[in-house]
Design a protein around this nucleic acid. Structure first.
Lengths: 229, 229
DNA sequence: CCAAAAGTGTTCGCGGTACACCCATGC
DNA sequence: GCATGGGTGTACCGCGAACACTTTTGG
């Protein structure tokens, strides 16, 4: 079967930059390509958009198929359309970025991928296509967004310590923060609430765990409240 | 001539939200469609992307062809891909927004357009396709961007009074600003410089004109300086 | 008892905000 | 001389920044 059009058409794809956070740094989920072009090279999970799915749906489907990742925070990033970004033919790709709780997702190899792995942002392998550029832009966006929107919580488990939260900001923003000032600020925003749980299995004093109160945030956001960290 | 592909393909288009500023409010440039679908309905300038041009190039070409607008600040906004956004077939459109100096551009009717016109943002006609949604998102983006990036200057003539600049912020942000505080803030940023010109043809004291010092801004931006208004 | 990280308050300075009057110009 | 907008200064308050020690826990 084949499809004919009066004018030549670009192919439309999606690619996803999935971020995860561990104790030390920000990581990106990459897959190793099974097929040409760029066979065996590491690349972002992604693929062609079908006619019966929206762009967001395509991004989620590819994440599920190629990396076994589902139910994840996902947001459109930017559309890349350089003429030669794919050596085969003209491909326009809508890039997404996603935030994963590293603990949650058992990543796995699938379909077009030989392997799947998390790579530290400042130690990436050579990437296929223009994917290095896409990752760079996603990182920039995340840095910007984390300052005025509560997206950071998507990278943490549901219960987290304030130290974990602080480390998250330090890693993403690339700066050190003062512990006392950070806690004062965060608690004054009144968006994280204390739970009665504490950290487990550490060999020093256990930290209290908090959770993000999304309900309260949504209420405030609706009233034109502005977060800023 | 026709082109065949193994899988069905979406068409790829661009659409542009061009903003302009007059004394009273923000305006959007619309064209009246000559052809079906939505014949005679107002719509954003835009059209299909050719295989030999980038997305940015396509946006600029369409602006030139349909509205006679050129050399304008242009930035990618978001990509819209709902299944039924075009009644003919699946069309994915990369939306752009642009900032025009209203004085500069002699807009004109051309190619696919019956007419071209500026419409006040809060008095838009019914728009074709999902263009109302695109305009809404562009407006939101402009409101956000103007606070931390010097894009407002793109809407003003090269020489402008501080009152004009203040009005710009008031119109885009939808708030009133205190004159003394605004001037203090703007001048302390040290990004606009006094010229020796003054406003012409007003029947009251003429305001001093200033210009934006892009060089200085670029230098500061490179050093990680952060603007915020 | 030692190591490791949790947790906690105060001071200072700058920047944001509120606020009202005189000045220059054209008609 | 009057109408119209241009242009200017000060006082207060709140928030962000700097800064160090005690407490808890597990081993």
């Amino acid at each position: 079967m084949s499809f004919s059009y009066e004018y030549a058409r670009a192919a439309v794809a999606v690619d996803c930059v999935v971020f995860g956070l561990d104790e030390k740094d920000l990581k990106v989920l990459l897959i190793q390509r099974k097929l040409q072009p760029f066979q065996h090279t590491w690349a972002l999970p992604g693929g062609f958009v079908r006619l019966d799915e929206t762009l967001d749906e395509a991004a989620r489907r590819e994440l599920e198929e190629e990396a076994g990742v589902s139910e994840i925070y996902l947001e459109q990033l930017y559309t890349f359309g350089a003429l030669d970004r794919d050596p085969r033919e003209r491909v326009v790709t809508i890039a997404y970025y996603a935030l994963a709780k590293l603990s949650d997702h058992r990543i796995r190899a699938a379909t077009d991928a030989m392997g799947v792995g998390w790579f530290s942002l400042d130690d990436l392998p050579k990437l296929a296509f223009d994917h290095a550029e896409i990752v760079a832009r996603a990182h920039e966006r995340l840095r910007g967004k984390v300052r005025y929107a509560p997206v950071g919580f998507e990278l943490l488990p549901p219960r987290f310590s304030l130290t974990q939260l602080q480390r998250l900001y330090e890693i993403i923003l690339g700066t050190e923060l003062d512990k006392r000032n950070f806690r004062k600020k965060i608690l004054s925003l009144d968006l994280v609430v204390e739970t009665d749980e504490v950290e487990q299995g550490v060999r020093h004093r256990a930290a209290r765990l908090y959770r993000f109160d999304r309900r309260k945030y949504d209420r405030l956001a609706k009233q034109g409240f502005e977060l800023s960290i």
